[in-house]
Deep mutational scan, measured.
Amino acid sequence: MGFKLLSKLLVYLTASIMAIASPLAFSVDSSGEYPTVSEIPVGEVRLYQIADGVWSHIATQSFDGAVYPSNGLIVRDGDELLLIDTAWGAKNTAALLAEIEKQIGLPVTRAVSTHFHDDRVGGVDVLRAAGVATYASPSTRRLAEVEGNEIPTHSLEGLSSSGDAVRFGPVELFYPGAAHSTDNLIVYVPSASVLYGGCAIYELSRTSAGNVADADLAEWPTSIERIQQHYPEAQFVIPGHGLPGGLDLLKHTTNVVKAHTNRSVVE
């Protein structure tokens, strides 16, 4: 069995187990497998329904001669939608809004960016022009300005110390501490036991640490421990890039980060 097929099978099995364990909360999309990078042309966006009122959005972007996937989250909030992270750029984010209108038909009224990198804030200006209120932590807003990236308009308070959590509509926002970046936030959907790890969490097929220019490698494993301790009931975990899975993604990420750190020390 090929690795790609095995990865998709694991996603399907995880979703099936969740649907059985929580039949009222989960209505997993039966329309197909989780979209992969090879299936999404740059400039297009796919939506994948995880649970009743919960979707991931998947886009792709060219970077350094390669094409990478990027995940975000959409959560229903009454007759409105909360968006977590842009679709990595203005063109993708405009396509995301169009796809949401086509498939869901509810307005996106608020959006949260989970850290300051372009795959999370690139497209904020498109959201703002569409009347979406954009939010991020003060740290993310400051770092985005320093980096020359787009800056969300509103500040999220109460997320300055490791372990801080605040309720934001249908989700809980959690600051686990520094990891992929010093400002990275985690998003949890309690009604569906869905954990969105953003770039602080890796997919299972990833074996290298990737972009760690703004990471705190020493603190990252401790931050992941905080996530595990705060959300032990999480059933569906979405990484910032690639295929979702279960809580095993947290341990896998820790292993990859520690291996990278150990290699760096040896070198």
Rank of each mutant, 00 (worst) to 15 (best):
G43S: 11
G72N: 05
E33K: 09
A215S: 08
E39L: 10
A111C: 07
A111I: 03
A213G: 11
A179H: 00
V54W: 12
G2F: 07
K102W: 14
V171C: 01
L83V: 11
G163D: 09
P107N: 10
L195G: 01
R263E: 04
T140C: 02
V11A: 09
G78P: 11
Y188Q: 11
V171T: 15
V108D: 00
G2D: 14
A94K: 14
G198R: 01
S193H: 14
H117G: 00
K102N: 02
D183W: 14
A94L: 09
V121L: 02
I74D: 04
T60P: 02
S181Q: 06
Q61I: 08
A95Y: 04
L127G: 08
C199Y: 07
G177K: 02
L10V: 07
N262A: 03
L185E: 04
P176D: 01
L159T: 10
W55D: 09
G105T: 08
A165W: 14
L96K: 00
G123S: 15
P244Y: 10
T254Y: 04
L83T: 14
T253E: 02
A94M: 09
R110Y: 03
G210H: 02
A259T: 03
T182C: 11
V126S: 15
A133G: 12
L185V: 11
M18D: 02
W220Q: 03
S193V: 08
P239C: 12
S30M: 11
N184K: 01
S30F: 02
I186S: 11
R46P: 12
G32P: 14
A87E: 00
T182G: 11
L156V: 01
K8F: 15
V121S: 13
A133F: 08
S62P: 07
E233V: 06
H180W: 01
G123N: 15
Y231R: 11
D64Y: 09
L217W: 08
R141V: 01
M1Q: 04
M18N: 01
E157V: 10
V146C: 02
K251V: 10
E157R: 12
L24C: 11
D216Y: 11
R76M: 11
D216W: 07
S193G: 08
S223Q: 15
Y231A: 08
D125E: 12
K251A: 06
H117Q: 00
T36E: 09
G89C: 08
L250D: 01
A59I: 08
G32W: 09
Y175V: 10
G197E: 02
R141C: 10
T86N: 00
I17Y: 05
V124L: 03
Y188T: 12
G122K: 04
I227C: 12
D183F: 10
V146E: 11
E147R: 03
T182H: 13
L24P: 04
L249C: 13
R142I: 02
I20Y: 13
P23L: 05
L81F: 03
V67N: 09
V194G: 11
I50L: 10
A136K: 07
V112R: 00
L195C: 08
I224A: 14
K8R: 06
H115R: 00
P170D: 04
A209S: 13
G148W: 05
E33G: 06
Y175P: 04
V28Y: 15
T253F: 05
V45P: 09
T60Q: 03
S208E: 14
N255S: 02
R141A: 12
H57A: 07
V132E: 02
L83N: 07
T60G: 06
R141D: 14
G89F: 05
E39F: 01
E101F: 14
Y68K: 05
R141L: 12
G32I: 00
D64L: 07
D29W: 06
D29T: 08
L83A: 14
G210V: 05
S22F: 01
G89P: 01
Y48M: 02
R167P: 07
E150N: 02
P138Q: 08
H230F: 15
S22G: 09
L217P: 06
S31V: 15
S56A: 04
V194M: 02
P176Q: 11
G198P: 11
Q228W: 11
I151P: 01
S38M: 10
P170N: 10
Q49I: 06
A129P: 01
F236Y: 00
L82K: 02
T253Y: 00
A192S: 14
V75L: 07
Q228S: 13
R142W: 05
D52G: 07
E147H: 01
A87W: 00
S22W: 14
H252N: 14
L185K: 07
F3E: 07
P244K: 10
D119R: 01
L243A: 08
A90G: 12
E157F: 14
P190D: 15
T114F: 02
E44A: 09
S62L: 09
Y231L: 06
N71I: 05
L247V: 05
W220N: 02
S7G: 10
I201H: 13
H115C: 00
D118Y: 05
G122N: 03
E147M: 10
G2W: 04
V212F: 14
I84C: 11
D118Q: 01
F116P: 00
G123W: 02
L96P: 00
Q235M: 05
V54L: 04
L10E: 07
T153D: 00
R206H: 04
Q228T: 15
E145F: 09
L250T: 13
L143V: 07
H230Q: 06
L250S: 07
N211A: 08
A144Q: 10
E80L: 14
A234D: 15
T86A: 14
A21E: 10
L9F: 11
S31P: 07
T134H: 15
T140R: 02
K102C: 08
G158Y: 01
G53Q: 11
P221W: 11
P232D: 05
P152N: 07
T134I: 12
E225M: 14
I151A: 04
V189N: 06
D52T: 04
V42G: 08
V146T: 09
H117Y: 00
E44N: 03
G123T: 00
D77E: 06
E44P: 03
A218N: 02
A66W: 05
